[in-house]
Design a protein around this nucleic acid. Structure first.
Length: 542
RNA sequence: GCGCCCGUAGCUCAAUCGGAUAGAGCAUCAGCCUUCUAAGCUGAGGGUUAGUGGUUCGAGUCCACUCGGGCGUACCA
């Protein structure tokens, strides 16, 4: 629709000089009596032309050579909007476009040939994933899906660190629990990992090795096994949400491959770093940031910034055109340093898109549940999936803008799970499947021969919504906002349900019935594709 | 103190570069199944968009200030 109008305006600019090179925007008006598409161009020109916007609008309309097979009406409304109304003939044509290739309708090759890396979850293996990680995981995977849909080849990546204090404590936590099983009394420290899963790992070790590990070092087998077991669980949890990372990148390999060392050397050579108080600092103030930051502590150990920068450099070296980083708002102070460090070395940081999601607040019984992995005071992602299912979890995290703080009322999620909007969408899909089975029995087929028979208000509104799908995906992806897709699908499902209650297939005249079958088949395809992007299943019956 | 995010209906959230009468779901109330799935549809009530001022044809959206909440502000990640 928009493409057609754009070409009309372009052609008209031959006659109306001021239309040349103008930034044309068409909106779908909220109120359907304002037409199918609306332009505010006349109002934007008032300053330049010093004329009443309605007069400008009139000039524009006379200059447009509209085809009355496509456009049924143009009007000037309100302060100077130009509203366009499309013919039913044109509107229904979308069905043919969808049915040519239903499974790929909405895909675009806009970014074909480009490669993207989406890094998400990236939790260190110290415990099970919590609900908070769930938001990160679902958002990351959905962003990856969206990018694939507009043509990117996407690698899903998980960055982790199995060195450092956290992991030492983890290993020792397991060791102490193991010794407890052997009957040894000890004072389990308060700041150690309190979770049940530690005891389970210890039990596993006892079952396999008996008391042989009594004098083992906490850094050795305890840590190793703990890491392995926990990662296994993390991957299992993610796979329940249909999430699979292609690459697991261990921070350690940056050291092994001397990337940290060489980066440090580069900064020194280029005079971006200096020594002070026994530490090495990066000159971030010179790069426009607030203050210089330490990259190597006086102990000789790098801070997180150095490996983070080195890590991102590997992404550039691996040739990605787009790198998406996803993390929670608690990390929002860290990425400017990393980006500045990259920019200093000449890397194009426009290729990095940092997405920060706000926290998930868990409410239970009207109370906020404080989350801490170490204190084992958390609700795991697994428990949540057990309660409400993968589809609800994915949809729930996708349906809200990540910039918003999110209240997750557990009681409500459990109790009212069958009233979740995801079921509304799935129900629409299942309903269509059921209709199509029924019409098959009646020996009715889908036909695009008489689509102009689809002229009721319900049919036209549904058709127009189907037309918006592709643009909706592109727009949502450019903004990295999956919640728009949820909103779109809910509107689409609502229009379908309304169509269903008013327009019948079986019992209608044959040509009309077959056109309607084509319509619902197309609707089913769009619903399914939308749900697929969100990572939600499209059941054939409910 | 400073930085980022947020404040919209009773609750959870939308609102397409600033567009026309601020929309959904839940909850509440009133209707609709002898006919393709009632997990559905129709209707009603519910708002000073936290507040004040500014920018303009037009502001929930942009700017300034105030109030309130979250997360940061390390030689932790």
């Amino acid at each position: 629709m928009k493409e057609y109008l754009k070409s009309l305006f372009e052609e008209a600019s031959e006659r109306l000089e001021y239309l040349k090179g103008i930034n044309l925007v068409f909106d779908v008006p909220k109120n359907e009596s304002h037409g199918d598409l609306s332009s505010n161009v006349a109002m934007l020109l008032t300053k330049q032309l010093k004329k009443n916007p309605r007069l400008i609008a009139e000039e524009i309309i006379t200059a447009l050579k509209t085809d009355n097979k496509i456009i049924s009406k143009t009007e000037i409304a309100g302060p100077g909007f130009i509203n366009f109304f499309f013919t039913p003939y044109f509107v229904s044509g979308i069905i043919k476009e969808i049915l040519v290739s239903p499974d790929t309708f909405g895909k675009s090759d806009k970014h074909k040939g480009k490669r993207a890396n989406v890094e998400f979850v990236s939790a260190n293996p110290t415990g099970p994933l919590t609900v908070g990680h769930g938001r990160n995981a679902v958002t990351g995977d959905t962003v990856a899906n969206m990018l694939e849909w507009i043509g990117y080849e996407v690698d899903r990546e998980y960055y982790f660190n199995n060195a450092g204090r956290q992991m030492r404590v983890l290993g020792d936590s397991v060791r102490l629990r193991y010794l407890e099983i052997l009957g040894e009394k000890n004072n389990f420290p308060e700041d150690y990992y309190q979770g049940e899963y530690i005891k389970e790992i210890a039990k596993k070790l006892f079952d396999e090795f008996g008391s042989k590990l009594k004098n083992e070092d906490p850094e050795g087998v305890f840590k190793e096994i703990a890491e392995k077991e926990i990662f296994k669980e993390i991957e299992k949890t993610l796979s329940r949400l249909s999430i699979k990372h292609k690459i697991f990148y261990n921070e350690n390999s940056l050291y092994e491959e001397k990337k940290i060392e060489s980066l440090l050397k580069t900064y020194k050579e280029k005079n971006f770093s200096y020594e002070k108080d026994g530490a090495i600092w990066l000159k971030l103030t010179e790069l426009g940031n607030e203050s210089d930051k330490v990259i190597v502590k006086s102990t000789g150990e790098p801070t997180y910034r150095l490996p983070d920068i080195a890590y991102h450099i590997t992404k550039y070296e691996r040739g990605y055109d787009l790198m998406v980083d996803l993390f929670g708002s608690d990390h929002n102070a860290t990425y400017p340093d990393v980006l500045a460090g990259l920019k200093a070395l000449g890397y194009d940081t426009d290729k990095v898109k940092v997405l920060i999601h706000q926290f998930v607040t868990i409410m239970e019984g009207g109370e906020v549940v404080k989350m801490s992995t170490r204190k084992a005071n958390y609700i795991t992602l697994d428990e949540l999936i057990d309660e409400v299912g993968s589809d609800v979890v994915r949809y729930f995290f996708n349906m809200r803008n990540i910039t918003s703080h999110m209240n997750f009322d557990l009681e409500l999620a459990k109790k009212h799970s069958d009233e979740n909007p995801v079921f509304y969408l799935q129900y629409a899909h299942a309903r269509i499947c059921s209709i199509l089975k029924m019409t098959e029995r009646e020996e009715l087929k889908s036909s695009t021969e008489n689509l102009s028979l689809l002229s009721t208000n319900e049919e036209q509104l549904l058709l127009k919504k189907l037309r918006q799908f592709k643009e909706e995906i592109e727009y949502s992806t450019e903004l990295f906002e999956a919640h728009r897709i949820c909103a779109y699908l809910e509107e689409l499902a609502a229009l379908f349900h309304r169509f269903y209650t008013v327009c019948r297939i079986i019992g209608s005249e044959k040509n009309l019935a077959e056109a309607r079958i084509a319509l619902v088949t197309a609707t089913r395809a769009v619903l399914k594709n939308g749900l697929t992007i969100l990572g939600v299943t499209a059941p054939e019956r409910m």
